[in-house]
Design a binder for these strands. Sequence first.
DNA 1: ACTCCTTTAGTCAGCACTGACTATCCAGGA
DNA 2: TCCTGGATAGTCAGTGCTGACTAAAGGAGT
Lengths: 198, 198
Amino acid sequence: MERRRRVPNPLALAVLAWLLWEPMHPYELGRRLKQTGKDRHIRYTRSSLYMVIEQLARAGFVTAQETVRDSARPERTVYAITEAGRHEVHDWLRSLLAQPREEYPHFAVALSLLSLLPPDEAVEVLRRRSAALAGRIEETRTTVDEARADGVAWIFLVEEQYSLALLEAERRFVIELIESLKQPDYAKSWQETMGGRT
Amino acid sequence: MERRRRVPNPLALAVLAWLLWEPMHPYELGRRLKQTGKDRHIRYTRSSLYMVIEQLARAGFVTAQETVRDSARPERTVYAITEAGRHEVHDWLRSLLAQPREEYPHFAVALSLLSLLPPDEAVEVLRRRSAALAGRIEETRTTVDEARADGVAWIFLVEEQYSLALLEAERRFVIELIESLKQPDYAKSWQETMGGRT
DNA sequence: ACTCCTTTAGTCAGCACTGACTATCCAGGA
DNA sequence: TCCTGGATAGTCAGTGCTGACTAAAGGAGT
């Protein structure tokens, strides 16, 4: 049904989207990703950027346009999106939006092993998480507010709003979980089953 | 602060946790991961399992105990956790629980490019997502209910409860987003800014 | 004129990960 | 007795990704 992407790295999607706008050289692409803060939702390093662009070129989604050597500096190759690339952006975007992909958050793995920790230790670390989450929520909220104050339209902040929603849901979950762990029956049953371990 | 893990793959944590219980050979580990359904929150394939165990051995977190050739069958190497491995499980688990790690959900990337799609198309694909999310929520809920009915304690279902919380939060977000996209002013401003594209 | 730091720009070796493949045993049907 | 399919168990080539490195230019301070 969903055929594999030739270049599955999400960074590739961002690159293609920028090239939709105008041809650019890799470094410029990286700069824009950073400047617009879109790199917060993508695993981005300069080396993977170059790798991904190479893969996109191999797949025929972009083509090297010209190699400029503008007054010294290492030569920079300008890339342009192709027709196939345009199609790929739209198709990929639609499919990403329509179908929830299996995600593997680190926290879920940790939760599945929560029973290894003594109840009071579990409560302690989860309290720290809750505080950290509060910090992130605060942070995200202020970046959104500042952008809005600068006149940025809501549609360009929708991904921040999304992570905000997730962070808040997680925080509620953690707080509830802490309460459950504090119940004396949990401590008792943990003693009984895990009492003699390591 | 947080030093890099020698074997950062979360699958390694699950492996170590099972070996905490008793020594095992790789295939057995895989079987248990599948049987207990813990593989739903970890990217698991048999080949990566073998790779990860090799890495764990190199890092000194597990040791090959014996190579059994139990009446034919390819020989199976039984691995046991070491003292360093025990320490690693606890340390890693605590840090995963206490500090929210930067996650990069695919959906966030897609959302950051939502403005590329015409409003009605965006609404259409998001409706499909919402339906798919409802399906997943239903699914997760029934697996939890069935497990509870089988007498599984809540602490062993906490990770399912977590993904449930996230799925529900995402669903609420998507429904709200659809409403925003349906506002006529959005369609109008989209026309103005993106009218003449591709 | 010299040194030092930052920015710009890109490369690369080494390891991690995955899909595809190999090979054996056993149960059951024809 | 032979054949087939599924379960068991593991290997490997090819590609992807990351951290660490290179290198030149520009500017600031002395």
